[in-house]
């Protein structure tokens, strides 16, 4: 058992209201599924697509990240799963996959103490 972070990228650009409705319904269903199965630890937060990047010793602030919208992380969720394979399998149900997006699954490092 361990915690895993889902990082969402991409998705549908400018959906119509009815498409939004359908996307929303699928997300509601998926989140409910994760909650019922006890795998949802924290639904997480969406992220703005703008931001700043701070680099170097001097703390230089630049606008960015300048990745394309489809490569930007748009939000995250924390789940509990048996192992990485299980977490990845659960992510397979994410509605973002149907509209060209992706889910990056990262194990949260364990403190073995």
């Amino acid at each position: 058992m361990g915690d895993f972070l889902y990082l969402y990228r991409g998705g549908q650009r400018n959906p119509s209201p009815e498409q939004s409705q359908q996307i929303m319904q699928k997300w509601l269903a998926w989140m409910k599924e994760l909650t019922v199965s006890g795998n949802l630890k924290d639904p997480g937060q969406p992220l703005e697509l703008e931001g700043k990047v701070v680099t170097g010793k001097g703390g230089t602030v630049t606008d960015g990240p300048f990745a394309e919208a489809k490569d930007l992380v748009g939000g995250f969720t924390l789940v509990v799963a048996d192992d990485l394979a299980h977490a990845a399998k659960l992510a397979g149900g994410c509605p973002i996959l149907e509209v060209g997006g992706s889910v990056e699954v990262r194990p949260v490092m364990k403190m073995d103490m």
């Binding site: 996307i23 929303m24 509601l28 989140m31 937060q45 969406p46 939000g75």
Partner: peptide, 17 residues
């Protein structure tokens, strides 16, 4: 309007309706 909808979708997806 499109912009408001996109924001709604992003937030509601994770935080619920």
């Amino acid at each position: 309007v499109q912009d408001a909808f996109c924001r709604a979708l992003e937030v509601w997806k994770l935080r619920g309706i």
